[in-house]
Simulated assay, not measured.
Amino acid sequence: MSALLEVSGVTVSFDGFRAINNLTFAIGAAELRAIIGPNGAGKSTFMDIVTGKTRPDSGSVTFGEKSVSLLKLSEAQIARAGIGRKFQRPTVFEDQTVRENLTLALKAARSPWAVLVWRKSAADEARIVTLAEQVGLGDRLEQKAGILSHGQKQWLEIAMLLAQEPKLLLVDEPAAGMTLAEREKTTELLVDIAKTRAVVVVEHDMDFVRRLNCKVTVLHEGAVLAEGSLDHVTKNQTVIDVYLGRG
Rank of each mutant, 00 (worst) to 15 (best):
E31V: 02
S58G: 13
K167M: 11
L168G: 01
T234H: 10
M47Y: 13
G37M: 14
V224M: 05
E75P: 15
A79P: 02
V68A: 13
A79E: 08
G52P: 11
E31R: 04
A226K: 10
V61T: 09
I49M: 07
L4M: 14
N213Q: 11
K43R: 11
S13I: 03
E133W: 01
T62F: 02
K120R: 15
S111D: 14
A223L: 00
G16N: 06
A175W: 11
L212C: 03
A109M: 05
V218C: 10
L137C: 09
T103A: 15
A223W: 02
G82R: 07
A109N: 14
L168K: 01
A34Q: 11
K215S: 11
V129L: 13
V242H: 08
G177K: 04
V115N: 10
D207M: 04
V191S: 00
G64P: 06
L161S: 01
V200S: 01
E227L: 04
G82P: 10
E94F: 09
K66R: 14
S60A: 14
L244N: 03
K235S: 15
A76N: 13
T97N: 09
T186G: 04
A109Q: 12
L219S: 01
E227R: 04
T97M: 10
A109L: 08
L180Y: 12
Q143W: 00
E142Y: 07
V242F: 09
L148K: 04
L131N: 07
T103I: 14
N101D: 12
V242R: 07
A159H: 09
A79W: 06
A109W: 00
L244H: 04
A176T: 15
F17E: 06
G177Q: 05
S8T: 15
E75F: 06
K235M: 15
A198I: 03
A105H: 00
T11L: 09
I20S: 04
I147K: 05
F46C: 01
A223H: 07
I49S: 09
V171Q: 03
V202K: 07
S111N: 14
N39D: 14
V233P: 12
A76T: 13
V61A: 10
K153R: 15
T238P: 01
L70N: 07
K235G: 12
D192P: 00
E133T: 11
P166L: 02
W113K: 11
Q152E: 15
L5I: 04
D57C: 09
I36T: 13
D231L: 14
K107T: 08
V12F: 06
L137V: 08
E94G: 07
G138K: 07
L102W: 12
V10M: 09
K86P: 00
G59H: 13
F63W: 08
H220E: 14
G82Y: 10
Y243H: 13
I27T: 01
V68F: 03
A123N: 14
L32I: 00
R183L: 06
V7K: 06
E203V: 12
G64D: 12
K53D: 12
Q96F: 15
M206N: 03
L102P: 09
L5W: 03
T45Y: 02
H204M: 10
S229H: 08
A108N: 08
L71M: 11
A132V: 12
F25T: 02
D192Y: 01
G16I: 06
G28L: 02
A26Q: 13
R197P: 03
G42A: 08
G82C: 07
D139Q: 07
G52W: 14
G222H: 05
I35C: 08
A159W: 10
G136P: 04
M178P: 07
A41N: 12
